[in-house]
Computed example of a mutant assay.
Amino acid sequence: MKKGVLLVNLGSPESPSPQDVKKYLGEFLMDERVIDIPLIARTALVKGIILKTRPKASAAAYKKIWWDEGSPLIVISERLKAKVQKEVDYPVALAMRYGSMTIKKGIQELVDQGVDEVFLIPLYPQFAMATTETILVLTEELRQEHFPNVKIDHLPAFYNKPDYIEVLSDSVKRHLGGKTYDHILFSYHGIPERHIRKSDVTKSHCKIDGSCCVTPSKAHEFCYKHQCLEVTRLVAEKLGLEEGAFSTSFQSRLGFDPWLQPYTDRTIERLGLAGVKNMAIITPAFVSDCLETLEEIAMEGQELFHEVGGKEFTTVPCLNDDDSWSALLGKWINNWAK
């Protein structure tokens, strides 16, 4: 069998125009693993409300961060793919869960090169219904329908792999430059609390009460919150951060249902009001800088921090196409291919 690799990231609108953003949001938010409510209710919510109000504001946000080369997430992912390709002897393709760079096109690109065994790498350190799971489910559907002779393996969540923690910690340390901060905030993308319970394979462990995430359980294999907290713990340990000098929060909530807390915006506000003058933010749920890191954190977060009395606000870039990160992906691929 000829082996190949498919890197999969989230996706992006074709442009920061309201029309393209609306199309992208429609595909993204209609995913039953993103907004996990019955189809009729989801359609009414997304098409009847969100897509009539949100595209204009989202397009304005995208325009703030758009690069001359295109969407930052797409450009960075393409750079990463090029570097990973230099690390391995197998064809490497890039796809997005949403948008025009479809997973189907990515698999087809590999098949056209004779590949019949694919190593699928969802570019998310932690497992979640709305990220890793939706990629795996769609990929299997596409395989059965269009590529029945292709074998597909995938890289599990790598949040606690020692070599990943090493690369992430080294990147954070390098970008912080040895400076001392009043507080370091680890901000992760938020998800509804019900997603945590739905992903609980034990159907009883996850209570989101502050204790279940630190109580050993096989539920942790698919528990997004546990995996986020573990990344914070492991990186803080690696960097020698003192208890109280760092914390974890969750961003980008949508709707009125309870999402994972504490919320990032409220945490930034609380820290500023408490007298924190300089803080740094790390966003380890993302491997590529995107709207949520470049606009929501680096722009909106900084503005909020200054409004409540904060002075210096530092955002640590994602791993992006860091040489050590691309080399690590190459190592994982080569280990799989043995």
Rank of each mutant, 00 (worst) to 15 (best):
Pro156Leu: 08
Gly106Ile: 03
His146Ser: 12
His226Asp: 10
Leu29Arg: 10
Gln19His: 03
Arg266Asp: 11
Gly240Arg: 02
Asp68Thr: 03
Leu94Thr: 08
Tyr263Val: 03
Gly99Ile: 01
Ile121Met: 05
Ala41Tyr: 13
Asn320Ala: 02
Tyr124His: 03
Lys179Phe: 11
Pro216Ile: 14
Glu133Asn: 09
Val84Ile: 15
Glu141Trp: 00
Ala82Asn: 14
Pro91Ile: 13
Leu39Cys: 01
Lys311Gln: 14
Asn334Lys: 14
Glu296Leu: 04
Asp322Ile: 00
Thr132Ile: 12
Ala236Phe: 07
Asp36Pro: 01
Ala82Phe: 00
Ala130Glu: 09
Ile40Met: 10
Ile50Gly: 04
Ser77Gln: 03
Phe28Trp: 05
Val276Met: 08
Tyr124Asn: 07
Ser288Cys: 11
His154Phe: 12
Tyr224Cys: 06
Phe186Tyr: 10
Arg233Gly: 07
Leu136Cys: 10
Ser204Arg: 15
Leu155Tyr: 01
Gln113His: 14
Val150Asp: 11
Gly255Arg: 06
Ala57Pro: 00
Leu271Glu: 15
Val75Thr: 03
Leu229Cys: 10
Asp112Tyr: 11
Ala57Val: 13
Ile107Glu: 06
Lys63Thr: 13
Thr134Arg: 03
Tyr224His: 11
Lys104His: 01
Leu260Asn: 09
Ala61Asn: 05
Ala59Tyr: 02
Val84Ser: 07
Ile74Tyr: 00
Gly330Ser: 10
Leu138Thr: 04
Thr293Asn: 10
Arg33Trp: 02
Pro125Asp: 11
Trp336Ile: 06
Ser71Thr: 08
Pro91Thr: 12
Asp89Ala: 08
Asn149Gly: 11
Phe186Val: 01
Ala157Phe: 01
Leu73Lys: 03
Trp66Phe: 04
Ile184Tyr: 09
Ile49Lys: 05
Lys22Tyr: 08
Ala41Pro: 04
Leu239Gln: 09
Ile135Lys: 07
Leu176Val: 11
Ser17Phe: 00
Tyr164Trp: 05
